[in-house]
Design a binder for these strands. Structure first.
Lengths: 152, 152
DNA sequence: TCAAAAGTGTATAGTATCTATACTCTAAAT
DNA sequence: ATTTAGAGTATAGATACTATACACTTTTGA
């Protein structure tokens, strides 16, 4: 094992952050003929995760954006045949957002993609012993705490 | 030390990525009266790093965007009194981009901010022994390789 | 009960950041 | 000398938001 310095680790860390963001942002098909941006697949993910029972406002809160933003994005995904929007029979001012079959395909393909990604990511941890896992956890916790404090 | 599972580490890791991106994106003053976005401070950083000798095209290549994007952003920072643009006396079709005193203030304040941040980040590694540093380096390298392969 | 208040979704203008195209210059090449 | 290449810019369009204003429905409370 070659000796490494702190600077190399620091650089590697930020490169990983950069790669993760890039990977997340890359538009993909997710089993459909539509190229879905990260915003679109995150919307579809949020709709499917609650069993297609959420309203526009609820989705906005889940996604951390305004309801106007969700409304705009839903208009686009609806036009592309991915999502649906129906009046809530128990509350006519509310809409229930759902997925079409194409939307469901994307939802499950994305879930599968995530499982594969997470599996590949986690693979490198399975070889570790408990002491190593605990060490890694401690390091990450300290970095996390530091970043949180830096954000005020 | 409490025992940790892989899932916790995985979650922590992605939270750190999220926090890092947020921290980077937060607009700051950097010692001036102007609130500078990440795009603006990255532009100022690129200008200053080469001693204010770069052209628009060179900055675009450094930043990984089109020259049109740099041209647009320079127009805004110039209007706000942060950057300058002068004809290259040796090539009249080329412009040399520089910093005003306000721009220089932001440049150095940003440098200092980065040093503080990096210092805080690296602090957690100084307590480690060589075996721990090597272990961390190995883990990060594997993750980096995995992410690169996932990007095609 | 019924008017005010609160909540739901949407339209629209505006912001930020980028690309792509077209254009005007200037410089270089043959 | 004229074509070609390069530099910078203007502008339109894409993406993804926020903020405001609005119409409509529901809840509330006197």
């Amino acid at each position: 094992m070659t000796e490494t310095d702190i600077h190399t680790i620091h650089k590697k860390f930020f490169n990983i952050v950069k790669l993760t963001v890039e990977l997340e942002k890359t538009p993909r098909h997710f089993g459909t003929d539509e190229l879905l941006t990260s915003t679109e697949i995150r919307l579809i993910e949020a709709i499917g995760d609650n069993g297609e029972t959420d309203s526009v406002t609820e989705l906005a809160n889940l996604l951390g954006v305004t309801k106007g933003a969700v409304s705009q994005n839903l208009k686009k995904t609806e036009k592309r045949g991915l999502t649906t929007k129906d009046e809530d029979p128990e509350n006519l001012s509310r809409s229930i957002v759902g997925l079409t079959s194409k939307g469901k395909t994307a939802y499950y393909a994305h879930k599968h993609w995530h499982e594969t990604m997470d599996g590949g990511f986690k693979y490198y941890f399975t070889e570790m012993n408990q002491a190593q896992l605990d060490f890694l956890h401690e390091v990450l916790s300290k970095i996390e705490t530091f970043l949180k404090s830096a954000m005020q």
